[in-house]
Structures are given as C-alpha cells and as structure tokens.
Amino acid sequence: MFHIYCPYCEELREEEEFHPKGQAHIARPEEPDACSDEEWGDYLFFRDNPRGIHHEMWLHAVGCRKFFNITRNTVSYEILETYRMGEQPTVGAEHLAREEKTASVQAAEGGQQTVGASDAALASVKGAQA
C-alpha cells in the first residue's frame, strides 16, 4: 500500500484516500477547432506509458478533494515526490538514468555482475522517452 504525502494537507495518508487520475502535465490545445484529427486524437487518447519515471495526477478523494501531482517509478512503485498543481517536477527520467548508472558502477567496484543492471537502466530511459 502507498503512503502518499498530500502537498495540500501536508500529511502522509493511506492509498485508499486517493484516486489515480492519469498522466500529469497534459496541456489542452489552445485552439481545439484548429487541431487536425491527428493532433486531437493524440491529445485525447495517447499517453506516456514509461517503464520507469512517470508524472501522474492523483486526487485526494476523501481528504481535501484536491488534485495534485506525483512523480513515481512504475517498476519499483517508489514515490519520488509529490507537488501541487501548477508546479513542475524536480525529478525526471535523467534522474533515474543517473541513479542507476551510479548503482551499476558501485556494483562493478564490488565485483558484481552489472550487465543486467545497466540493461534495465537503458530500457527505463527508452521507455521514459516513448
């Protein structure tokens, strides 16, 4: 179960108080009537689906009833940050790549096999850019 820090209530609460509401930071086209079918379809239906770092909106449904954003790793499920609507994330896909690179280097110094780790990092970055 997630323990989610609501940036408005400023408290850690249990997952059941919240609803995930999909990808964050999607801007509505300024002039919808001027969109091509391609652009409008992309806006409506196409979402980032990264294997790695993902920015998503959540609703504190039975708390303050406010929307906010979470940056989360979709493989480890680790919540990296929560922030208010209108704010920008401070953690991105580059962060993950850097972190895993450091991890694999450390592993190498310790004499561990690193092939798997670096492959996973590569895959995550590719997924994050998709």
Binding site: F45, R47, P50, R51, A123, G127, A130
Partner: peptide, 18 residues
C-alpha cells in the same frame, strides 16, 4: 504490458497504459 516499451524502440507511440 511491455508493448509501449517496444513501440518506443521503433519510435512509435501507442495509446496504451500498462
């Protein structure tokens, strides 16, 4: 579930969420 990752390798985007 990994279709989006694979599509990303080919430079494609799919309307999927895993």
């Amino acid at each position: 579930g990994n279709s989006s990752v694979l599509a990303g390798m080919a430079g494609l985007n799919l309307p999927l969420e895993s």
